[in-house]
Design a protein around this nucleic acid. Sequence first.
DNA 1: GTTTGTTCCTGAGGGC
DNA 2: TGCCCTCAGGAACAAA
Length: 283
Amino acid sequence: MPELPEVETVRRGLEPVMAGRVIAHAQVNRAGLRWPFPPQMAERLTGVQVLALRRRSKYILADLSSGESLLIHLGMSGRMLISGAQLGDFHHDHPAPAKHDHVVLDMEGGARVTFNDARRFGAMDLLPTAGAEAHPLLAVLGPEPLGNAFDAPYLAARLAGRNTPIKTALLDQHLVAGLGNIYVCEVLYRAGIHPERRALSLSADETARLVPLIRDVLAEAIEAGGSSLRDYRQADGELGYFQHSFRVYGREGQPCATPGCAALVHRLVQSGRSSFFCPHCQR
DNA sequence: GTTTGTTCCTGAGGGC
DNA sequence: TGCCCTCAGGAACAAA
């Protein structure tokens, strides 16, 4: 379930095999994923150079020499598999084509990037690089949580008057872009705020506390991803997961991680998604 | 404008 | 061993 840190880790993993390289051949194996692919996507990708790889929220943008950018969203189960590249001391051959390999990019020099997505919640699109932020998927996004525009006054203004649970509010990509279910659970745990608290009920102090905690959790997860990159784990697709560091997510029934707290982690469902929390530490 | 519910999709895991 | 059932979730969209 890629959220901002995982997407950033994938972007960093793709950079050495894609940035500055020409896409020698693009193969598109189906008409689309979540949405139809743009017309002639394979042709528009073939023979163009990748100038840079950027990230906005959970989206990766590959700026191309054609003046277009390839927008990539991994959805729930999307993975970018790298093969045939020189990664440290290892040389990976291309694996046999696998089920759910939807888009295959063969780079000049021999590296191959395969977009594999079993649940097909992912997406790809092509848009003009100039004014890319006007794309419908990007235009509505809130600020980057690691950027300067995301600060306590901004968050306070956006939470004011909202009766929705704070858990749901932080998942809203229009409010802040890049947080998903896992990291919101982790952030609220660290902040000591119950996921069912109404957004408007948060004190100024609680709101201000959330901002650096959001930055911390994401930065730590990106750092953990960076560790996995150094272990050359790109080839198996398991890029940068923070899962060994989860304190509440997926830990229902297990003891709270806070020293001295004897409570067990609880789970509840909000907006159809699981929230994990400590009923003692989070109020 | 806000909030909730529905939809898309497949693989994993539990129960029997 | 295998079948059936439920669940996981990002984001658009519809509806209240």
